[in-house]
């Protein structure tokens, strides 16, 4: 349902809407995967003096949260989520350089990558985007990562979180190889390890020694926030 009632023939002028209506409309536009409209909405809010971080969290992340919820509930499917993500990406592209300039808060840092033998990155990319939207710095290692690539990145980037993704049942066991190597090297407990991907489940996450399995991008963000807060509290205790 559209936030602003209108007939099929009406052209909605986004700049005519007040802030609240515009954000509501942007939720709808994200839901419908309308990239150009999202870009326009972001630019209007910037012109009205909204801080980039506020636009990101209230308009974009807020809208994607609705998309994520409906995906989880089986109302939306992968194609619709991809279109929505693509629209959000358009908005993010405008905001990203401005976020760096305006010193948006940094919640934590994550290194993320799809495991060796697996080239599927839709879920990983979605998590990266939502994590960035939530204020995390994300170092994306891309696809088909061997254990050495993960370890090098951990050493170089010193993140709070390591995220691993897999779509295939044939590749998901490789996550255990990575975690076992971290244990062997005595660095396992230096990081929060989050895993995700369509064939995984909580039991698998526990069995391989991850800190948590995240069923979707929204859960990944919430889980990451919880672990990072706990970690910071422990460090400050």
């Amino acid at each position: 349902m559209k936030a602003i009632a209108m007939s099929e023939d009406d052209d909605l002028i986004l700049s005519d809407l007040n802030d609240e209506e515009l954000v509501e409309q942007m939720f709808d536009d994200l839901y419908d995967g309308l990239k150009e409209e999202i870009e326009e909405g972001v630019n209007i809010l910037l012109e009205r003096g909204w801080a980039p971080y506020r636009i990101l969290t209230e308009a974009l992340v807020g809208g994607m949260t609705i998309v994520g919820k409906d995906f989880r509930d089986g109302i939306l499917f992968v194609p619709e989520v991809l279109l929505a993500a693509n629209a959000m990406k358009g908005g993010m592209a405008i905001l990203k350089p401005l976020l760096a300039e305006t010193g948006a808060p940094r919640v934590g840092k994550m290194v993320i990558g799809t495991v060796k033998g697996d080239i599927h990155d839709i879920g990983k990319n979605l998590v990266s985007m939502m994590m960035e939207g939530a204020g995390f710095e994300v170092v994306d290692l891309g696809i088909n990562n061997a254990v050495e690539a993960y370890l090098e990145a951990l050493e170089a980037e010193k993140p709070d979180i390591l995220g691993m993704s897999a779509l295939l049942t044939t590749t998901m066991p490789y996550m255990k190889t990575v975690i076992d190597t971290m244990v062997e090297q005595g660095i396992r407990d230096d990081y929060v390890v989050l895993v995700g991907g369509a064939p995984l489940n909580e039991e698998f996450g526990r069995a391989i020694g991850a800190d948590a399995y995240c069923r979707d991008a929204a859960v990944a963000v919430e889980t990451a926030k919880t672990f990072v807060t706990r970690r910071h509290n422990q460090m400050n205790a």
Partner: peptide, 8 residues
């Protein structure tokens, strides 16, 4: 969804 959204 490629029948409706080939851009994906």
């Amino acid at each position: 969804g490629l029948d409706k959204h080939p851009e994906l």
